[in-house]
Amino acid sequence: MDVKQQKLNKEYQIYVQRKMPKSNLLRDCILAFLVGGLICTIGQAVNNFGKSYFNLNTEEASAFTAIVMIFIGALLTGLGVYDDIGKYGGAGSVVPITGFANSIVSPAMEFKKEGYVFGVGSKLFSIAGPVLVYGITASVLVGLIYFFVK
């Protein structure tokens, strides 16, 4: 690419960046806080319920909460509601464990048409896969550091 074209491109890119509307960051942050907060509050309520009603200890209650929240996330995805929550909630609906359920159930629904092996099987983790790879890698690293520092 010659220098003149590069300059032209740069000018255009700057111009486009200035002209294009930005997402409303403040509104998105508030909505993410409210939606994410609501999901976590429900999670806490489930946790408390498990502890008081089923007499679960802290560890058992955590597992119980995760199971219930994943089920709710998957159910709402299947009912076609979770994508609407995501549209408003943004990161608030992606970060909690319900968002993880959504990212696994939505490709499962979508790619069923390509069969159970090359559709559901291979596409199931197409979105959640990177989260698992880097999440697990990070936890191993943190674990190692903890092991030596302790």
Binding site: M20, P21, K22, S23, D28, T77, G78, G80, Y82, D83, D84, I85, G86, K87, G89, G90, S93, V94, G99, N102, S103, V105, S106, P107, M109, E110, F111, I127
Partner: peptide
């Protein structure tokens, strides 16, 4: 996927 909860920019 369609049911994935994502936000679209303006």
């Amino acid at each position: 996927p369609l049911e994935m909860g994502t936000q679209r920019p303006p």
